[in-house]
Computed example of a mutant assay.
Amino acid sequence: MSTGSITFEVVPNWEKCPAGDEFSHEDVAGVACDSRDRVFLHTRKGERVMVYDSDGNFLYKWGDGVFNRAHGITIHDDLVYCTDDQDSVVRVFDLEGNFQWMLGEPRKVSDTGYGSIKGRKPQIHHNEYVERSADGFNCCCNVCIAQNKDMFVADGYGNARIHHFSPKGELLNSWGEVGTGPGEFHVPHGIALDRQENVIVCDRENDRLQFFDRSGKFIAIWDDVLRPTDVVVDDEGLIYVSELWRPMEAGQGSFTHGFADRDLPGRVTVFAPQGNIVARWGADSNARSAPGNFIAPHALALDSQGSLYVAEVSVSFGSGFNRIAREACIDHQIQKFRRVDR
């Protein structure tokens, strides 16, 4: 599957989740692979980390009672970095779930005017009420790690900034303002480093990727994307992007509150380092819950074999807007795609 020069096939029914409430979940907000190709799922309802082998067999879990709301997960040098967007922190664990340290303080947020902090319920756009950018976290989304272990955090739901930390957790730099121009963001959501260690930011509600050097200097914009949620880069320099569904709102006729005047379904796109598309699939309005298609793609991971894992927040997004039967959403949370063109 895919239209382009590289091809993937879906691995049906990959996740073999054990029965019982202590294992159940309704979304996979984040996914990451360790050095042994074990797959770590950061799940919602319940809020925990579930660990599987590459064939989807359950191994162990951890984190029950730790997270307020699961979001991103990144593994670097066998340390696991988990973002909690409701607590506004990045917690760091070893592979067995033993807590190491934390960036930020739970529920201590920067003053950006974000609506949920003021008691107002945010709309689907999430940072509709963000009035200004600020240093410090406010509902941070994802983190990526440089080779020297510097950390870059996309602080997007309640802020519009990228924060750059040293390996010791010292804030080195922040950049970004609210808006639509270069270096401005509307939900900076996913983040990764390319092969040159330039910073790629999924500027989600602006429908674009923005590229910066490590100091925050603007480099480029790629705009052939739809609500990009996550980005990963492989050893060839290929750039993989998950793109979130923008649903049609009856009678709306505009992009207000994250809706569109036509259905724009979720998909995955793979770009060459130069920006040309080498694979794209999904974007099926009629069969979005079928294997290989997407309801609400939210996070990505690659293993050492080139297989791609796509995590979805299908229950929150699909059934939450009464667009898709809840049963279909529960069965559509994590998919593995095997690369077959090699």
Rank of each mutant, 00 (worst) to 15 (best):
D203V: 04
S215H: 11
L172P: 00
F259D: 03
H257I: 10
G176A: 12
G216W: 03
D230A: 14
Y157D: 01
P291L: 07
D261S: 12
H257D: 14
E205P: 00
T229A: 12
G179M: 07
N293T: 12
R195F: 02
Y157N: 00
Y157C: 03
L244F: 13
A260P: 07
I239M: 02
G292T: 05
G183S: 09
D284V: 03
A260G: 03
E184C: 12
N173K: 13
I277F: 03
E170T: 15
W281M: 13
L209K: 02
D213N: 04
P167H: 08
Q252S: 11
D223K: 13
N276S: 14
G237F: 04
V231A: 00
D263S: 09
W281Y: 12
D261C: 08
H189D: 12
L226H: 07
A160F: 04
P273D: 05
A283N: 15
H164L: 02
A279W: 09
V187T: 09
G169F: 05
G156F: 05
A160V: 01
H257V: 14
S242C: 11
D284R: 08
L193G: 07
V241P: 00
D213G: 05
H163A: 15
L193I: 11
I200Y: 08
I200W: 13
I219P: 01
Y240A: 14
